[in-house]
């Protein structure tokens, strides 16, 4: 469903020099799975997600989403995905209904199908009370619900959640978790990024732990725990990142 090979992203900045946001990552994610990208801030998770959703172009490497390559057929890729990110806000001057309707139409849905799907989604996410509420009047949780419904309206086979619970209270975050679990059970391929270990351990079948633009470890949480003989998830995460930092420091010292 999602195949990523040697994906790199380098930002050229004349003050700080070249910044390697992604240093050649590779992973695969299949339908009915939640693939977690876990890493500290600045690890490159959002960059990878933005490339998969075609918002950014990779410097090199290949990323296939449901058979479409992100640089060659970006429009087709966008039809295959629903993207929910901490960076994808909703319009202040549009109602929840209008916002979801717009994205349904942009995805080429016919009017009857769209109305039916929206009714179902608004029922499922208990959003009927906020149909005509403007974005500027919504709470953070309400906004995130609209974002999720916007991403689901065209029933995409791939869902990308980038730090989707950031800034949400516990109740709203639980709603997001429940949605992700339902989507997984429906057979969707979900990519879920977070820097919170408990979220990942609850939702993900497979995880890739990232640091400084590279995947430092990948597999199921159980596999990783057995490999590193650390059975506490938080501890495992800390251990892997610390090890990666030590390697980076020694490499930097060797390179002067």
């Amino acid at each position: 469903m999602i195949h990523v090979r040697n994906l790199t992203k380098i930002y050229n900045g004349f003050q700080e020099g070249d910044f390697v946001a992604l240093g050649g990552i590779s992973f695969d994610a299949m339908p009915g799975q939640v693939f977690g990208l876990l890493g500290p801030n600045g690890a490159g998770k959002s960059t990878a997600m933005r490339i998969l959703s075609t918002v950014l172009k990779p410097t090199s490497g290949i990323a296939l989403v449901n058979g479409y390559e992100v640089t060659e057929s970006p429009s087709d890729v966008r039809r295959q995905i629903g993207f929910v990110s901490v960076n994808t806000m909703i319009y202040d001057r549009m109602t929840a209904w209008e916002m979801v309707e717009l994205f349904g139409r942009l995805n080429g849905m016919n009017e009857d199908e769209l109305q039916l799907r929206m009714e179902r989604l608004f029922d499922r996410f208990q959003m009927n009370g906020m149909r005509n509420l403007l974005g500027s009047k919504m709470s953070t949780g309400m906004k995130q619900k609209v974002s999720i419904v916007r991403a689901l309206v065209h029933d995409p086979p791939v869902l990308i959640f980038d730090e989707a619970t950031s800034g949400l209270d516990v109740l709203a975050a639980r709603e997001v978790f429940r949605s992700v679990e339902e989507l997984r059970d429906e057979g969707k391929c979900v990519i879920y990024s977070s820097h919170i270990m408990s979220e990942i351990s609850r939702l993900c079948n497979l995880v890739a732990i990232m640091n400084r633009g590279r995947i430092v470890a990948a597999g199921s949480l159980q596999q990783l725990a057995d490999e590193h003989e650390v059975h506490d998830a938080e501890e495992l995460f800390y251990e892997l990142i610390a090890q990666s930092e030590r390697e980076h420091s020694s490499l930097a010292m060797r390179n002067g």
Binding site: R50, S53, T54, V55, P74, S75, R78, R79, I81, F83, S85, N87, T88, M89, I90, Y91, D92, F103, L106, N107, G108, S147, R150
Partner: peptide, 13 residues
């Protein structure tokens, strides 16, 4: 306002 990325991730080119 952060809505630009939302629009860029839609199927519109």
């Amino acid at each position: 306002r952060g809505t630009f990325e939302t629009l860029l991730s839609s199927p519109a080119s």
